[in-house]
Design a protein around this nucleic acid. Structure first.
Lengths: 336, 336
DNA sequence: CTGAAAGCGCTAACAG
DNA sequence: CTGTTAGCGCTTTCAG
């Protein structure tokens, strides 16, 4: 009636549970004959090991937890895809945790993950608060940061160099002949995607002898609506400009839409470059020139690192700055 | 050194583990005094219950598994979002499983989920093969289908009525004065998003006394590129038409892009309506008129149903056809 | 009100 | 080569 256990198999095969366990794990120490019997019993009963019981004794669950601020965003789901893919290859399952805005549920989730005895944690796209750090430390499991990092604690991370990528984007615009370049930025309090990207922009201007004008940067927030407003503000209040660097694709697209509505042609009248290279960057018209972040690959990398920490329990850190890429599509034109 | 167990708490509080368990579960049978002692010990030791051990005896893991053909798609991640949200509210964790194209990894994952003793399964956007059905049946856990269904087996599902939604879309175009309406369809072998939507389109034409022309439907596949080709084919080979119904937003956008490149203005020269209402439908320019599927809500609903099946073990089916919605944006215009 | 003890299904010594 | 046994951490009778 109940699902067969290792005991049932043992009984059916007329051996001890230890022997069954042995053949199931391909350990040494049994005759071929025994092996046959066991395998047959397994077959007949349709036996499947119980990972919970196994986990209890092994103190390993072959499960990792992944924390996201938003599960449903192209951004997060690309990362998740990468994580899940290599996790499953290495025999791990992944529990997704949507921490919601402001990490409201982060602590709660950390506790759940602890109770569920996950073997490791991937923490993405959010600032790792001290509180979180402590909680994870108490769990004694490895963590990997993705798309974020911690100055304070030595925790391995996987991310692109935002500052450098923003520099790259801005510099590209400059190479294309633009000198009046506006920026739509995220909140400067955002230590991940806000401040560093603005810094990259400023540095690129500086290195090219272009004056930085505060009036040319609009703080947009990462949602579509906010960036439309930002664009509007820029268009009406900022000194004239011929190109704009948006700190995310979504912002870039909001800006593009607003521009379209105003009869501004992209890239003829205005060049624009985004950041992220989400799937829809290729789908808008004209296709958006942008900074590509290899999100899926970053997820894979994080998964690999985490699992190697779990398996070898070599607690050494080894972060990766993965390289971004500038994808030229059709929203930037050379200024003659 | 090791994380404290219930035993440690018992010792520290000078009571038995049974008592600790009682107060932790708010069961009756202990003095207030005892309660205090236990709580204090829990506090001091920083005790957290071990869900694995608990799961072993309870035969419940408070975990559900969710199978997706693609984790990284706006579509799946919206559903996942809904599932995760209500799951966590009800005290369940979710393991994501990316079954990859063709469900290549479905069987393998089903086995993993069985070994991990999940309490239930959500199966999305794929045909439930007999093989899968058998495997799940052997697991003796409830399943909910999302965005798919099974004729053969009585399994509760949550989905919109594709045929009806497609009818709605087509009919809308007709109401707007269009009579030459093309369609970009998915594969007709696709029992979920392919065939039924074409049927809806045909029926709407029929009900309005419009002749169905096979030459006006192009099979596009759901990816961007394929739908560009489909649009191209339509534009060159099909009889003239003034509107097109695309079986997905992605297809609609591919078609739009191709049209733009050809200098066709949307909606002035050509109206277009999509299907899904993914996030980017709002982001393209002009914003896409489309059929909204309440994906997050469907995820929530599925989660709720599943968990109630798990908790009450009332194995009765109760499917939901959730209602779609036609979202009017700016890609369809009335034909005078 | 409280404790002892029997498992849940599995692994891993330890003895043969 | 194979079996016995002691747990893993927790819940839950069953006795006091």
């Amino acid at each position: 009636m109940n699902p067969p256990t290792i005991k049932d198999v043992a009984k059916a095969a007329n051996v001890s549970v230890a022997t069954v366990s042995r053949v199931l794990h391909n350990l040494a120490g049994y005759s071929d004959r025994t092996r046959q019997k066991v395998m047959q019993a397994v077959e007949e009963l349709g036996y499947q090991p119980n990972a919970i019981a196994r986990g209890l004794v092994n103190k390993r669950t072959q499960t990792i937890g992944v924390l996201f601020p938003h599960v449903s965003s192209s951004f997060s789901s690309d990362i998740l895809h990468g994580i899940e893919e290599t996790a499953q290859e290495k025999g791990f399952s992944v529990i997704v945790c949507n921490t919601a805005e402001e990490g409201k549920r982060t602590m709660k989730y950390l506790q759940v993950l602890r109770e569920k005895q996950v073997d490791g944690i991937v923490f993405t796209s959010e600032v790792l608060k001290d509180e979180y750090y402590q909680a994870i430390k108490e769990m004694r499991v490895p963590v990997i940061l993705v798309n974020t990092m911690s100055q304070k604690h030595m925790i391995p991370y996987v991310k692109v160099d935002d500052r450098q990528a923003a520099y790259h984007a801005t510099n590209y615009l400059i190479q294309k002949g633009h000198r009046e370049i506006a920026m739509i930025s995220g909140s400067l309090k955002d230590q991940i995607a806000g401040y560093p990207r603005l810094e990259g922009y400023r540095q690129a201007l500086a290195d090219n002898g272009i004056e930085y004008l505060e009036s040319r940067v609009a703080i947009g927030g990462f949602q579509l609506e906010r960036s439309r407003e930002a664009m509007k503000k820029l268009l009406t209040e900022a000194p004239p400009f011929t190109a704009v660097f948006a700190a995310s694709d979504e912002m870039a697209i909001g800006a593009m839409n607003y521009a379209f509505e105003q009869g501004i042609k992209i890239p003829d009248d205005l060049s624009i470059i985004g950041y992220d290279d989400l799937k829809f960057a290729r789908m808008v018209y004209p296709p958006l020139t942008t900074i590509h972040q290899p999100l899926t690959m970053m997820g894979r990398l994080a998964s690999e690192k985490l699992i190697s920490l779990i398996e070898q329990s070599e607690m050494q850190v080894s972060s990766s700055i993965v390289s971004h890429q500038l994808v030229e599509r059709q929203t930037v034109r050379s200024k003659p």
